[in-house]
Structures are given as structure tokens and as C-alpha cells.
Design a protein around this nucleic acid. Structure first.
Lengths: 206, 206
DNA sequence: GTCTATACTGAGATAGAC
DNA sequence: GTCTATCTCAGTATAGAC
């Protein structure tokens, strides 16, 4: 079969999304895909290589959407400062479109960030786009010390990852947990206020 | 040896803190502790049971400190509303004391929350204390709809977990990444502003 | 270049002797 | 309570068929 590779990718994406990376064995993947175990290592080198391929296929369009969205709001601002909300929406809401098609993959993206899982893969797919958004936030919040800005980005990543992949710990009305979009909008509200908070006092004397 | 159990616990706590739970094999633990593999299963039932025991030993005092601190600030407020900052400090800063003694364990606590790792263990150790803090926040923010409050707590947990266990993704001055305390103070600033943000508009028509 | 069959190492778990 | 031996299943590596 010519598309052994595609079958492995499709099956792996589904199973990893459903069960998580660690809990998904290659043997389970190959059984459902109807291929041989060694084919995985031939095409992807290792289990981690397979994950990388799965992620690349899906996360690339998300990042492109993020950047396009950011450029649009920057253009609309006409060279002036861009609202923090707009920047965060550009970063957070593109995942929502993907969620409609493959909710499992959103969980996988969240997992990759939340778990220390494959730091190299996360760096590769997240850092370049992330740096671009850091620049935008730096311009939007010129009064905030650089170090505190970077920590706030770190906090944002944590909150986002957790929101994308973990069920809420406290009981919520059944409709509340269903869709990603309303959740992400609450997150934008929350994070925007956090980013706009005055710098923490007494930081310098550390 | 009578304290086989203690030796296993001490060694497991150290190794899991250093390397993470998944990366730490029982065989590595028993080799360093100088005990037999079956002893682990005799005393703790499973690898997960061992983790539970490790966590219980350390997280219980942290939660007690959290609750004591919260009660103190509530008393100081004399029945009136407690400031959001004070509530968040009561929740976040007790981990700092632990970090001074065993920084590895702070990373482990963060990992437990960040990774879907052992949801039962997380629930057991986190929910009861968490519920108490949700009540305090509900009183401090009476105008905020219940559902949005609970999501904000979810965001907080994500940001906190990520902050406790992940190295910053963007380059920071070397002193910046060292201590937990200044990081947690920045986090309190950020989260307090997020919690005090007005409710997201247009939520109801969902 | 692609893929199959098979073997290797190390993981967690368990039964039963002592 | 403790230890030996063993079981199952994971990811990985390689030899060779096509």
C-alpha cells in the first residue's frame, strides 16, 4: 500500500488524541492501521518521531492562522498600539477552528505544552510563533518590564495548555464544558486583564 | 530492615522530583534504595501507589498551611470581603516554603497538576483544599457568574502548575529563573487582575 | 526504497517459597 | 515481610524479502 505512512499518521493522531501519548502504544496504532511495526520506525524513526509528524501536520496551519490574524489586527491599528485583547485572540482563537474538525487534536496540543512531553517538539512548533506574539505584546505594553512580560507569557501558556487538555476540576453545568470557543473567550478576558496589570512592586530589589 | 518503606519513599521522592514520574523506573528506585523490587509492590501496591504515598507525605502540610493562611486573612478582614490578592497569596505562596527545602518536590507537584497524571491522586489531594478557596473567591467576587469563576480557577491551576514545573520557554536573565518566590509573586499580580476582570460579555446567549 | 518477521532490552506486575 | 523467578507488554534494532 502506498499510503502506509498516511494510515499510520491518521491512526496515531486519533489514538494519541483519545488516550494521550504515553498511553498509546505503537502496537495499538499498527494493529488499527493494519501495518507492520517496523514500518513506523522506517517512516518516522521512533515513537517520538511519529508524534512530531502528527503534530507538524496539524499545528502548522494553526500557526499560520495565528500569524495572519495578528498581522490583520496590526494593520487595522495602522501602526499604533494594538489592543492586548486583539493580540490574545489572535493567539488563542485559531485553535477553535481546529477543534471543530478534530477535538482530539486540541487536547493533544494542550498535552504537548502541559506535559514536559517532548520539549524539542514543543520548541520547534511553538517558539517561532510565540516570539512573534511576544514582540506584539511588548509593543502593546511598553511600561511592563521585559522580565515580567516574559513570565506573563509563561503564565498564559500554562493556562492555555491546561484549558485545552484538562477537564475542569470543579463541577460545571453540563453545557459549560462542551465547546472550546466560549471557554477560550473567557480565557481571553482573564489573560487580558492579567497582562494589563501594573508591574509587580518590589521586584527590583531581588 | 524496618524502614524499607521509608527508604523507598525518600529515594522515590528524590528521583521522581529530578527526572519526572514516567522517566523514573521502579528498578532505578530500588537499586538506589538497596531494596527488592517486590518490596515496592508489597508496601505500595503499584508504581502509582508509591507516587500517591510520596505526594501525601509532602502535600498535606502544604495544604494545611494554605488553609491556615486563608483563615488568618479572613479573620483579619473581620467578616468583610477579603482581597483577591490575599486569597491567591494564601494559595500560591505556601509552596515557596517547601521549595526552599526540596525544590524537586515543587516540580513534582506542578507535574501532577499539569500532566493528566494520576487524576485520582490529584483530586484526592487538591480538590478539598481547592473547594475551600473557591468559596473564598466567590465571596470576594460576588458579581462574577459562578461558571466564569470556576473557569478562572481552572486557568489559575494551569498557570500555577506550569509555573511550578516548566522551565521558561523564552530566554530570561539567569537570576530570573532561579527562585520560586519572585515568580509566584508575579503570578499573584497576574492572576489577581485576571480574577477581578469584569465578566465576559455575551456569555449568556450561548 | 518499502515493508515483514523476528529478536532484544527493559518496564511494571505477580505468585509462591522462605 | 522479604526475596526469587517469571509473566506480559512496551519501544527499539536489524536482517532480509520484494
Amino acid at each position: 500500500m502506498i499510503d502506509t505512512k498516511e494510515k499510520i499518521l491518521d491512526t496515531a493522531e486519533r489514538l494519541i488524541g483519545e488516550q494521550g501519548y504515553a498511553a498509546t502504544s505503537l502496537r495499538h496504532v499498527i494493529a488499527e492501521a493494519g501495518v507492520n511495526l517496523a514500518a513506523v520506525h522506517y517512516h518516522f524513526g521512533s515513537k517520538e518521531g511519529l508524534l512530531d509528524a502528527v503534530v507538524t501536520r496539524k499545528v502548522t496551519p494553526v500557526n499560520l492562522t495565528r500569524l495572519a490574524w495578528l498581522e490583520r489586527v496590526e494593520t487595522e491599528a495602522g501602526g499604533g498600539p494594538v489592543e492586548v485583547e486583539k493580540i490574545l485572540e489572535s493567539f488563542l482563537l485559531p485553535t477553535v477552528e481546529v477543534a471543530g474538525r478534530s477535538p482530539d487534536f486540541v487536547r493533544l496540543m494542550g498535552q504537548m505544552l502541559a506535559e514536559g512531553m517532548m520539549p524539542r517538539i514543543v520548541e520547534k512548533h511553538f517558539r517561532p510563533t510565540g516570539m512573534r506574539f511576544v514582540s506584539a505584546l511588548r509593543q502593546a505594553l511598553p511600561a511592563l518590564p521585559e522580565e515580567e512580560l516574559l513570565w506573563r507569557v509563561h503564565f498564559m501558556v500554562g493556562a492555555m495548555a491546561h484549558t485545552m487538555c484538562r477537564p475542569p476540576m470543579f463541577p460545571l453545568p453540563p453545557e459549560g464544558a462542551a465547546d472550546l470557543e466560549p471557554r477560550m473567550k473567557l480565557l481571553v478576558t482573564f489573560l487580558s486583564a492579567g497582562f494589563r496589570a501594573p508591574a509587580t512592586a518590589g521586584k527590583e530589589e531581588r
